[in-house]
Design a protein around this nucleic acid. Structure first.
Lengths: 208, 208, 208, 208
DNA sequence: GATGAATGAGTCTTCATTCAT
DNA sequence: AATGAATGAAGACTCATTCAT
């Protein structure tokens, strides 16, 4: 009973912390003071540091969660019978739930083994979505999976300052534009070599 | 003669500073120490602070320059006889020359009157480009100038960390996709109300 | 019965705490976190703080115990029939059992009345040992009790960092050297006035 | 002129810092806050950190200076014609000028290459002093150079709290006792194997 | 006018102490 | 009475800004 109460409280605190961290980091940038997160979560600094031993560890956790949401989004897309709708759902979900909003830090922090694993799962699921769309002939043929991933990443970069409903609204519109641009056959040939994972490699350094 | 020499030297110093600041900020992020800029420019801290009394002032100057490049890009677009090519050139130029790379700080720093003015000039020029494209029927009819501006802004958000050639390459491809998506007639209707400047207002707060 | 059981348990806990504290402090230094002691003792922080209301109180207790061991060592020395062997045994025991290992903190922490009392008892016993050795003519005549006490203190100062067997070995040798140096008649006259307790006074401040 | 003035000021500041650091560290322990040193030196924290990039670096510098004083002491000892007086002078000087007062931290901080070099020079000079004394038959034959070095180290450990003249006075007396104990022939055989550098090795870890 | 050392407030992190369970 | 999570003050270190030279 007591233990369960403690665990419940700990879980609630952890959730509060993660929410606060996400809020603060996406609105104030990754250089926001840790104390701001603690205050936002309504806990002391010590409590934050009990759960996450460094600021980096907190960021790693947030990234991991974002990546897991990306995997879920991809799986939801695959569950969709229509290939195009599946791909569009994936992209819209990723951008919409901000699962990519933390991708930017991936270049700043150490990438853990768990993060690598999740990233690979996400990439594989995305790969299947893209392949299915290509087979159905609904996706312009010169688009690669990496193009799609980076499209999501680019659209996930948050505007600085406090988040406004306007941002969200316009982003939805831009996303429709981009999705229309992804549709087969595509008006203009994409420039340069089609990017592959191998070529892109160093997006997050090398796996540990 | 001496005066002219002084002025020339001052101008040269200022240019060195701005180049250094642009270099340092885009490679190390906006939290790079001011001393790094001074070192990169090869001047002492005092000289930097003589010209720009705060770090913010330096950022404001860089933003202003970026905006002016936006105006130039729009004017170059208008000089293009083909309405679509003009618009595309504008967008490509803005994203390509990173004139929007500093847009992210616009939410962090105070926006000066001069910046407001330049922003308005840029918006007006963009407005003309968009109107011309609409009249020519080459731009999907549900797209507004603000959509275009924010498309540029979104594509201008740089990836954090050291910039890689891969990023640039892929961004070119994404841009082609987005431009294809902008073309008339547009496959999918853009969702929500068309955004207007007045509605968007609060992007950078209210003009001083 | 229950009460006795409780008392026994409390006593056992206290012993565990003291052992853990001694272990942790001597291996990690006095700046070791209190939590390390609680973990080593296998109890929660609350239990530790129930028994010792501050870290200082714990240190005071350890010091007191060390002093009591000093008294015991002196009494053991007095029990030795040979005056020189008695004195040497005292010194060797004090240095060897690290009863003085906590002396360094005596300058850092508040000295309690109980500590003062025990210190006086130890000094008195040492005084008797020294007097007996002087009377037997085995101790160089210019050595005072305080000299002996401070010799022990100096030899008790531990090397920082993890204790190595090498340290102990060499310390035994140095101790033999010092003891030889204490023997009558002494080759070189000791410099300065013979120190007395009154003169030394301020070693730990004034008694409360 | 200006440069020379700057250099002079910088040198003066550096000296002030080193003096303050020595003072603070030896009286308050090595865990004394860096800010205490800055305050004692009458400079801001930034100035301290400009010269010494970490607290450890400051300690390394202090250690190095102490070691250099040790080398000087050994050389002064060798300059003394009488072998015994030379050795005694060396020991007395090292203990007296507190050149060994910082030896304790050597186990706490990273030992730099420069420190290793200086330590070796000091050890070699000590070796010569000891060998000369042995040859002259004035030093008990079972004493090794390492015994002497560690005798100095042990006597160099400072008493905690504010330094009192009493400490110094008594230490002088204890030192005479120890020196008498070092004299040939020695009353009691030293216990255990004679320690050698190789055996002791890990005193400060392994050289870089 | 230029230089770069000095300043000190602000950030991350630790740990003595408290307190709800 | 025991537990261990929560608190927040304090310490190491950084960097925007000032100022003596």
């Amino acid at each position: 009973m007591t233990t369960r109460g403690r665990q419940a409280e700990a879980a609630r605190n952890d959730l509060r912390l993660l929410r606060a961290a996400h809020e603060v980091f996406t609105t104030q940038g990754f250089d926001a003071p840790v104390s701001a997160i603690a205050k936002q979560a309504g806990v002391g600094m010590g409590s934050l540091y009990r759960r996450y031993r460094t600021k980096e560890e907190l960021l790693q956790r947030l990234c991991l969660i974002a990546m897991e949401r990306g995997v879920e989004a991809a799986e939801a897309g695959l569950a969709e019978p229509d290939p195009w709708e599946g791909l569009a759902l994936y992209i819209r979900t990723c951008v919409g739930n901000r699962s990519g909003a933390l991708a930017p830090v991936a270049g700043t922090i150490e990438v853990t083994a768990e993060m690598w694993g999740t990233a690979r799962r996400a990439d594989e699921a995305a790969e299947r979505l893209v392949a299915r769309a290509h087979e159905a002939g609904v996706l312009r043929s010169d688009v690669t999976t990496l193009d799609v991933s980076l499209l999501i990443e680019q659209f996930s970069r948050p505007a600085p300052g406090p988040p406004a409903p306007q941002h969200e609204h316009v982003k939805q519109r831009l996303l429709v534009i981009a999705l229309d641009g992804l549709r087969a056959p595509g008006a203009t040939a994409l420039p340069g070599e089609p990017p592959t994972m191998e070529w892109y490699q160093g997006r997050w350094g090398t796996p540990p």
